[in-house]
Design a protein around this nucleic acid. Structure first.
Lengths: 192, 192, 192, 192
DNA sequence: AATGAATGAGATTTCATTCAT
DNA sequence: GATGAATGAAATCTCATTCAT
């Protein structure tokens, strides 16, 4: 019945309020995305989460650990629907990527992780694990299925092709080119 | 001819030491790349450049203006050599991109500009103007020449193809895939 | 200080520079009055006077000396007109005092000298010498004439009566009571 | 009955040390008086009060607010003793005024408030409310009682007479005339 | 556990003054 | 003599972290 916490056997006393944990991490992720690591102040996180700063430090020793924990809450997109139509499936995943990144300000979060790579490599590591890799996996799965079925002539390994498909969004964003409607379809058509 | 100051008020008084200007901007760019915007402190810039903080403020009113000026010193690669061999030319440019970004820690700088986009949009704007756009222009020029010469069958507009080529590096970097030897050749071969 | 160099030699067509000394002192006095001693920055004085900061330091070693010199330029009011009507003469001088202090922001300047008394006693000393004492002298002269002529029954020494007359303005100002029309007449009538 | 914090949120957390509050305000008032507003640095206040600068900022957001709070601690003199002897009562109050201003360096504080009037009008406002007005009220009360009792022939409204009595001190101070023994008695005798 | 208080270590910016031309 | 450059020494304010209740 009791919620034994990992690594803290025999924890006695007043249990931690789990709601606070969630609220803090959500606030941290929002502020991390919106303002970057250094501008995400613990004061602001505390205020947004409705707790005190000391409560944050009770759970994570440093601001860096908090940021890492917040990144670890990134949930990969739901497993993408697969129709068997390779191009349509890939385009759907690309379109979803563009939508999510645009809606959540994801490029700023990616920027934060890149910018902090020297100082806090964990951030980029966690971003990879929780966001980049799962996203790539979805594409790779479709491509592998296609190759197995001989559906499409693909003369590039799936991982590199995944990089090409995902990379277009990054490069476009850096160039100031915004993805309009039909963007995903055009990309897939051209690269395949 | 005459050396009177009257006609040339800019010459009055002690002249500015041009070395300081250069040193400050170089230090700022280095620290901006290595530590990001907020960790690039004026103290550190001053120390690295061998000047006082007030000397920095004499030239740029705020830290933000200094960072922008530092970014504006980014010189695009020398106009790339064009051999007429489309694939070789593109691969050479990609390889140079990878080399430069790796050597200078360019991805961290890109990250800083992305992370600060909301707070200081100028940074991303300057990065675009001084680094991204020129880089893309080199690729686009080769692709346009190829298309004009009918050298290669290209079924995608040059700009999008440039995004695909450049984007592979970004996506690979985010995925933790490091570009080994032959990387550029393989990418060009696959995408064309 | 010699004034032999009255103009810029051989500068045909260029208007003669107004006396820098005068311009600096005027600017300093204005800023001293408007912003107080510590907020009167040499940068602002230099800009207002149209000279460089170094030019100021060429004449006065420190900011304090400049402030003192500026105060020393305070010219006492023109010798007041004396009609022989004691009350009218006194009221005229009081009304002039109120007008001058109001128009020039004199209370702020008095405040600055008082506030700096511990740090720079010279300021209050100069204010006394150049503004307070002459002002009092005008009143005292009238009172002495009156006493000599037996015009008015004055049972208080002239200096103390001068303090009373002048002090009303100070006390009213401190209390937030603004002197309206007829103020001077009422005061004189009451105190005599 | 229960000791839950919910109903009394002010009791949660570490309680504020009330001594610090007092010490900070006392230090601020002392330094404000002795050195003026701009020379009253937070560093000095913190050192004099034995706290850190951040502790000051925890209570007052800006230096201006701190100075205002310090001025607001000025307590008017205890309600003056009233004997019924109008002249003696007035003289006693005047003598007390002179003693307090001399002992505490009050003229410098008045100077600071005057000097800062344009920049921080709150200071003069607070000085009025906490020091000037109460002081005047004491005089006015005596004068009103006297008039009601017909004790003295007063041909000037009480407020203006209060200005005259208080103003003598200001004017004397500005003129460099120091109030010796018997000063208050002489002033009252002369003006009434 | 949770909170508000407290703090040491900066960060940016300003300023009176000196320097070099 | 006059100027603009250069600087050392603050000054205000912020923040991650620790403390006491």
């Amino acid at each position: 019945m009791e919620k034994t916490r990992k690594g803290c056997p025999g924890a006695a006393g007043r249990p931690r309020c789990p709601d606070k944990e969630t609220a803090i991490l959500a606030a941290a992720l929002t502020l991390l995305t919106r303002h970057g690591f250094t501008r995400m102040t613990l004061d602001n996180v505390a205020r947004a989460a409705g707790v005190s700063k000391a409560t944050i430090h009770l759970r994570w020793r440093t601001k860096t650990e908090l940021a890492a924990a917040a990144l670890a809450t990134l949930r990969p997109c739901a497993a993408p629907h697969t129709t068997g139509d390779v191009r349509a499936d890939l385009a759907a995943q690309l379109a979803d990527l563009a939508a999510v990144l645009t809606r959540t300000g994801g490029m700023a979060l990616i920027g934060t992780c890149l910018a902090e790579e020297d100082h806090t490599p964990d951030l980029l590591e966690l971003l990879r694990e929780h966001a980049v890799i799962p996203r790539r996996a979805g594409l790779v799965r479709v491509l592998d299925q296609a190759r197995a079925a001989g559906t499409a002539a693909i003369d590039l390994d799936a991982e590199s092709l995944a990089s090409a498909l995902l990379g277009v969004f990054c490069a476009d964003y850096l160039a100031g080119r915004t993805a309009g409607p039909g963007w995903a379809d055009r990309i897939v058509a051209a690269l395949l």
